[in-house]
Structure formats: structure tokens, C-alpha cells
């Protein structure tokens, strides 16, 4: 690990100032000399591995704004403060009752120890665990722009089949983000120019030619809140995560599903896919395929086909296409059958 300085500002303005002080033009936040730290479950790991080498750590845990640690639920929305720990959000009675998808996406992620530490704001900004990104001796365009992509023709069983580019096929591994993008959530951001709201669907960037630029955030931007609108689909929602072992593993494929049903017919569907794409992945074509349809196996399969129509496999991850489809089919049928 490289030496770094550490500070613990007491309010958001001071935190923004501490980071903007070191921010450099054209350097994306992930490579900025100043890094915000929440739970540290991702950043501290990458610092130890030499993947992240910040000069300054700006610790957000001392921020005095109580809203950062609060969960507010009313009939229209859930608002999570960004410093709420994953475990607290997952265990929140109202969250579990009103929108099971959100709670399930959290409780099926990581391990109990990590969920106790990790913050929701940090969670959505977690970086890929691509093996070739994690270890600094491999070529990686995301870690070292222009160095190449060792995963493209290497061992790529866990890599993305959707949203990849010639430069990068690293999977976005998060689970919570799939719930957020499916539910049309947004994030509230504080930065050098004040406060703004960003649709969650606009937060992450496809890798394209610049896989090192992962979000639309600037180096001094802090996510302070996450807003999840509630609607007729919220109660009938779930997260299905398929993985190599029962717990403490990233998704090989996952599906976030919320349905508004009129009897057996789909009035409105919201679908996102995890473990298969480079960014949080909304499956709009699958949603459209279900509109007004009676949700049976056939309709579910048709939606799954639509979801993966553009999938591009590499040598070891082709199985994610049939697996991703089956996962979505199963998730749709199980969500349909929920007793709400």
C-alpha cells in the first residue's frame, strides 16, 4: 500500500472542498488523487492490491448531516441517506414490506460482515472485480487506459455479455444497483456547483472507448441520497440471484423484477439484469415484450429472448446467455406468483 493522507471532514461542503482541492481536469474520479471513503469494503481492498493509489482519503463517516444516515419511507418513495449501511437498509421493515426487491438485492449481496460496513452510496459506485483488473500486472484498460484488455481472450467466465466494448468486458457486480435501475431511482449529488439529482439510469457509463470513466460524477461529487419511487409494482417485486455457491458470491446472473398485474396480465413490468452486463442493466425490450400479455412460461421466455438479443459472448462466458434467460424466466414467474 502506498502512503496517503487521511482526513475526516464534518460536513458535506468541507468534504467536497477537500476532494476538489486535489482534483485534476480530465482525470476521472476513480483515478483522482483524492478519494472518498465510506465503508471502505471496496476501496481499502483495492488500495492494498495497488489498484487504487489515492494520495488523500476523505472519510465521509464524520459528516454531521443526520439525513445521510436516515431511511425515510412514505407512500410515494423511499429515500436512503448515502451513509446508511447495507445491513440496516436490508433489515428495514418498511423497505421489506413496500419493496421486497430492494431489501432482497441488499441481503443477497456480499457477506454479513461486509453489509455491516458498506454504505449504500459506496455500494452503487463499487468497481468491477474482474480478475485482470484486480491484479496490477495484467493489461487493463480500465485500470491503465491504453494498456489493453487481458480478459478479452483470457479467462472470462465471469465477464459481461451485455454492454461490453472492444476495450472492456468487465462485469458490474453490484446487486442493489439492479433494483435501483429497475425502479427508476435517482441519486442526489452534492458537488462543487451545489446539489443536483441524477436519474440512476444515467449514473453509470458504458465502457466504450473509456472504460476508466465509470460514471458521470465529477471527482468532488458525493452521493448524499438515493430516492426510490414507489408505485403499484413495488410490492410485487423480487431479486433472484444465481451464483456458484449459496452465499458470498457475485451473481453469475441475476434478475430484478417488479410487476404491476391486472389479474394474470402484465400492466407494467420493470426488469434489470445483473452479473451479465458492464453496467447496471435495464432490460426495456423485455419489459415491452410483456406489456399487456398474460404472464405464462411462453411470455416469460419471449421477454428473456428480447433481453438477451444483443448479447455477445466470449470464450468462457457464453453460458451466461442461456443462464441469464432462465434466471429472468424464473424471476418473472416467481414474482407473478408472489402473494401480495
Amino acid at each position: 500500500m502506498r502512503p496517503f493522507t487521511y482526513e475526516r471532514p464534518v460536513n458535506v461542503q468541507a468534504a467536497v472542498a477537500a476532494a476538489s482541492h486535489l482534483a485534476k481536469p480530465l482525470v476521472p474520479p476513480t483515478q483522482s488523487p483524492a478519494q472518498f471513503i465510506g465503508g471502505g469494503t471496496n476501496l481499502a481492498d483495492y488500495m492494498k492490491l495497488g489498484v487504487a493509489q489515492p494520495e488523500r482519503l476523505v472519510d465521509l463517516n464524520g459528516l454531521d448531516d443526520a439525513g445521510l444516515r436516515r431511511i425515510q419511507v412514505d407512500d410515494k418513495r423511499i429515500v436512503f441517506g448515502a451513509l446508511v449501511r447495507m445491513s440496516d437498509a436490508a433489515a428495514h421493515e418498511e423497505v421489506r414490506r413496500r419493496c421486497p426487491l430492494v431489501a432482497e438485492s441488499l441481503v443477497l449481496a456480499a457477506s454479513g460482515q461486509i453489509r455491516n460496513m458498506a454504505t449504500l452510496g459506496g455500494n452503487v459506485l463499487q468497481r468491477t472485480r474482474c480478475e485482470y483488473f484486480r491484479e496490477t500486472s495484467w493489461a487493463c484498460n480500465k485500470r491503465e487506459p491504453g494498456s489493453g484488455c487481458a480478459a478479452m481472450d483470457g479467462f472470462n467466465r465471469q465477464h459481461a455479455v451485455l454492454g461490453g466494448s472492444d476495450q472492456c468486458i468487465a462485469t458490474y457486480h453490484g446487486d442493489f444497483a439492479q433494483a435501483l435501475i429497475a425502479l427508476d431511482a435517482s441519486v442526489v449529488v452534492e458537488g462543487q456547483h451545489g446539489s443536483r439529482k441524477i436519474a440512476f439510469a444515467d449514473l453509470h457509463r458504458l465502457p466504450g472507448d473509456t472504460p476508466n470513466i465509470e460514471t458521470v460524477l465529477g471527482p468532488a461529487d458525493i452521493i448524499v441520497a438515493i430516492e426510490v419511487p414507489l408505485g403499484p409494482w413495488s410490492g410485487r417485486s423480487r431479486y433472484l440471484k444465481i451464483r456458484d455457491r449459496e452465499s458470498y458470491a457475485f451473481a453469475l446472473a441475476s434478475a430484478a423484477v417488479a410487476l404491476d398485474m391486472d389479474g394474470g396480465t402484465v400492466r407494467h413490468a420493470r426488469i434489470a439484469l445483473g452479473g451479465v452486463a458492464t453496467v447496471p442493466w435495464r432490460a426495456k425490450k423485455a419489459e415491452e415484450a410483456l406489456l399487456g400479455k398474460v404472464l405464462n412460461e411462453g411470455a416469460a421466455h419471449a421477454a428473456a429472448e428480447a433481453a438477451f438479443a444483443d448479447a455477445r459472448p466470449r470464450e468462457h462466458n457464453a453460458f451466461k446467455i442461456p443462464l441469464g434467460k432462465s434466471t429472468l424466466v424464473r424471476a418473472l414467474l416467481e414474482t407473478r406468483d408472489m402473494k401480495v
Binding site: G154, F155, S247
Partner: peptide, 22 residues
């Protein structure tokens, strides 16, 4: 990694063993 004769999953994140839940 067959091209480089290098081990790829050198940690307990990617080298899977069963957890209690299994």
C-alpha cells in the same frame, strides 16, 4: 490463463470454497 501460464483467481473471492450456507 493458458496464454501466459499464470493463475488468474488468486484470492478467496474468486477461488470458491463452500460457505456455511452451502
Amino acid at each position: 490463463d493458458q496464454r501466459h501460464a499464470r493463475y488468474v483467481n488468486r484470492d478467496l473471492q474468486d477461488y470458491l470454497v463452500p460457505v456455511n450456507a452451502d
